[in-house]
Design a protein around this nucleic acid. Structure first.
Lengths: 218, 218
DNA sequence: CGTAACTGACCGCACGTTCAGTCAGCAATG
DNA sequence: CATTGCTGACTGAACGTGCGGTCAGTTACG
């Protein structure tokens, strides 16, 4: 066991366990055993279980920021950049699986405890990257959206929720999925002239849903 | 304590705890204490902690199916129905908060253990409802999408991921959020003639992302 | 030799589950 | 009406287990 790489190995195996079982169900003893180490070694390197989780988050977002910077530097227009970000988020599910799942399914974990502030900063910054792409697209006349902030959340939801259904050996490749999502969100589902009467449709939809009997608990 | 309603009360408080803390961090003793009951009572009614979680899922999906059936019965066209489903999913975050969060953030929990089969059935059925709306929309010439199954997952991601950011006291109402999401997905972000060259854009995006240095762990 | 990686026994604790038993309500019995 | 017996909600003490974390001590590299 080459020593200075123990940290990386611990991070890797820990993320895999959390991805497969969940944080609470991941025991440091199991992780250590898989690496031929003792539980104490992990605590020696990281101080606490929570700190290991935090480190996974930090390194994961480091990779995503590198990606986003590279995209910004090498693609000129908002449309290309947005498509690239959609692809990047989906590809991370395949190419950076353990850390992706860890950061997505244990998200709440990061909102409490000591990690909170630093993690929040990383997330806000990442959101900002997509919001900026959307704003620049609107300014350039390429995009239309009434609220870039919400549209960014739409994009994140669409991509990040993939952790609940994406399987590397599934029927579609990441490239195909990204293609469908990009097409959906860029050109829209409507064939016709669009949603001029969308306000009326929404109002009626709200009315119907609210009227549903037995819609609420209790 | 009116007796036969103990079950419902346990279900309610249990879901609130899971929504706020997570499943593993929810202790039956805490739930019981909040209701003025003993831990044993909960086990008496449900048999195990896992069974309580399963019951929350079943009742939650019962409400969502009631909603979906009502929408289908009272709205005639695919566009209206799709908008209504988007609104329903988002509104559940506000009006059925505890159970929504429980089912979304503890999703993996349902894929293992005894609950698996029944829960999977409910989820597949719900997905099918949206897939059908999309297929009917394509058949009627209202919608275009290359893959209704993936587009349905797009819709679910967009809506369900809201559990990570939606707050009832946030700046936007559920109705406003649903409006932005519906507009985004129906008319698309592109102002121009659409994405005729989207394949080329995607290919280039894939190329750039893949070239990113330090994109992968290790 | 110094330093840092690493060990392994140990601690305290919180949890889900078990189980023998209490008690109120209720229907049938005489 | 009084008695009996049953049912099912509910209790609370006890149990076993597995966990994260501590720490004094050992090893081995530079």
């Amino acid at each position: 066991m080459v020593r200075p790489s123990s940290r990386d190995a611990i991070l890797r195996v820990f993320a895999e366990h959390v991805a497969d079982r969940g944080y609470a169900e991941t025991s440091l003893a199991d992780v250590a055993a898989e690496l031929g180490l003792s539980k104490g070694t992990i605590l020696h390197h990281f101080g606490s279980k929570e700190a290991v989780l935090g480190e996974v988050h930090v390194t994961y977002f480091g990779r995503r920021f590198a990606e986003a910077d590279y995209v910004r530097a090498h693609l000129p227009d908002p449309t290309s950049r947005l498509v690239a970000m959609i692809y990047a988020l989906l590809a991370a599910h395949r190419d950076d699986r353990a850390a992706s799942l860890t950061c997505l399914r244990e998200l709440v974990r990061y909102f409490e405890g000591d990690l909170r502030e630093f993690v929040r900063t990383q997330r806000v910054r990442y959101t900002g990257i997509v919001v900026d792409i959307l704003r620049e697209g609107v300014a350039a006349g390429e995009f239309r959206t009434t609220d870039p902030g919400l549209t960014a959340l739409h994009v994140f939801g669409m991509c990040n929720y993939a952790w609940t259904w994406y399987r590397p050996d599934g029927p579609q490749s990441v490239e195909q999925i990204a293609g469908v999502f990009a097409r959906d969100i860029l050109q829209g589902l409507r064939t016709g002239p669009g949603a001029d009467d969308l306000d009326a449709v929404l109002t009626e939809a709200v009315r119907v849903v609210r009227r549903t009997p037995a819609r609420l608990p209790g």
